[in-house]
């Protein structure tokens, strides 16, 4: 049942796993944000792939074309990308503040300094 024809989705799954793994395994907070971004990108690709209609053209009105790909997922994902950028910005800002307060951006160091977490 494995169909390589849907390779987009295999990429999506691969990226998603890479992102999650980075988020969980890395102690460095910046790397966690990188992982988060990879994870989100996977979802973006999933949405965009979803909009493809077989044999459909780019969804810009042109004479003589009757089949268009579905533009709605693209629009949706624009919103999601904006949200993702905002999240990244906020996350990085927090990392800066954490660096100021603790002098480190490594999770293990932070644990040690607070004796909990």
């Amino acid at each position: 049942m494995i169909s390589l024809g849907l390779y987009n989705y295999w990429i999506v799954i691969g990226l998603m796993m890479v992102g999650l793994y980075v988020m969980i395994s890395r102690g460095n907070l910046i790397k966690k944000i990188v992982g988060l971004n990879i994870f989100q990108s996977a979802v973006f690709i999933m949405y965009i792939s979803m909009g493809v209609v077989e044999g459909g053209a780019v969804p810009i009105l042109t004479d003589g074309v009757t089949r268009y790909s579905n533009p709605l997922p693209h629009v949706l994902i624009l919103t999601a990308i904006v949200v993702g950028v905002a999240t990244t910005a906020l996350g990085l800002a927090l990392v800066v503040r954490i660096k100021e307060a603790y002098g480190s951006v490594d999770e293990d160091d932070l644990h040690r300094m607070d004796n909990d977490f």
């Binding site: 999650l20 988020m23 907070l29 966690k32 988060l36 994870f39 989100q40 979802v43 999933m46 949405y47 979803m50 997922p73 999601a80 999240t87 906020l90 996350g91 927090l94 990392v95 503040r97 954490i98 307060a101 932070l110 607070d114 909990d116 977490f117």
Partner: peptide
């Protein structure tokens, strides 16, 4: 510790929201 807890929530919350997004998709 407010900072670290907010960061932790940011990571987990975003994962949660993205999961939700996948589901909706």
């Amino acid at each position: 510790r407010a900072l670290t807890s907010a960061f932790r929530y940011l990571i987990m919350g975003t994962v949660g929201a993205t999961f939700f997004l996948i589901g909706v998709g």
